[in-house]
Design a protein around this nucleic acid. Structure first.
Lengths: 136, 136
DNA sequence: TTGCGTGCAAAGGTTTTGCATGGCA
DNA sequence: TGCCATGCAAAACCTTTGCACGCAA
């Protein structure tokens, strides 16, 4: 599942850069800076458009942040081992934690059967306070 | 627990209007329109400032929406019966659904005990597709 | 009188859109 | 050649801030 049509140096630069991120999350800003460092500067608009498409194609996961904060992306690529888990975001330190857990799957089933709602783990972010910050 | 100091007609108008919302969610826009209808037009800035304070005081709950969407508020007032439920937001039609359910409480406990993470139901919004939109 | 409260206008931030140019096929 | 991709600038969006005026106490 590729982009639309043409193959341009911007697309390949972004795609490669995104893959190099591993499973870390990154913002548009961060990505742009890396591209510049690599000598592959790409226009902001293009980066926005690319990441939007990649998200739709399931290659990236997009985390929409509240007003004023920029969105966050994560590479999931072909190895879909990251499809069925949720993310916990600490409100104190901002860290994003992966939670791979059967409990969530049964929750999803419950919500589906009892509330008629198909939840989307890709977009859902659970807010709270992580262990480290709670101790302080 | 009041505001800061003075009592103005704007404050009383907003506070009364907010209470009349019951447990429904509303946006700044919606609130402003109602105020206008009631002949109590209040400046947008003032409404923002008031709702911010009311949220800090625990009288309102604030739901921060992603970029481009305006925040959502809900009256909780003194009767805190709405503290322990979650919200489902449909990605298609945008409707926000209350989910009052024991399942969620046990989930919260699980996350706490197994992942050391104290989740915040006030801020967490679960995304997905609602029953009505799924049928289309 | 004192100083907070109000609200207009402008700024702040991210994201989207218009449109002309340039590059892929 | 034809059309998509790019990227600059400007718009759009919600929210916050500056600042002068007005009203509560």
């Amino acid at each position: 599942m590729k982009q639309t049509n043409y193959k341009t140096k911007q697309k390949t630069a972004i795609l490669q850069c995104v893959k190099n991120m591993g499973d870390k999350h990154f913002t548009i800003d961060a990505l742009c800076e890396i591209l510049i460092k690599n000598g592959n500067a790409v226009g902001r608009t293009t980066v926005y458009r690319m990441l939007e498409k990649l998200s739709e194609d399931g290659i990236l996961r997009k985390f929409v942040m509240p007003q004023g904060e920029s969105s966050c992306y994560q590479y999931v690529g072909d190895h879909n081992h990251c499809h069925e888990h949720f993310h916990l975001k600490c409100e104190k330190c901002g860290s994003l934690i992966h939670m791979d857990c059967d409990e969530m799957n049964s929750l999803a089933e419950h919500i589906k059967s009892h509330h008629g709602f198909s939840l989307n783990p890709l977009k859902t972010v659970i807010y709270g306070v992580c262990e480290g910050c709670a101790e302080k």
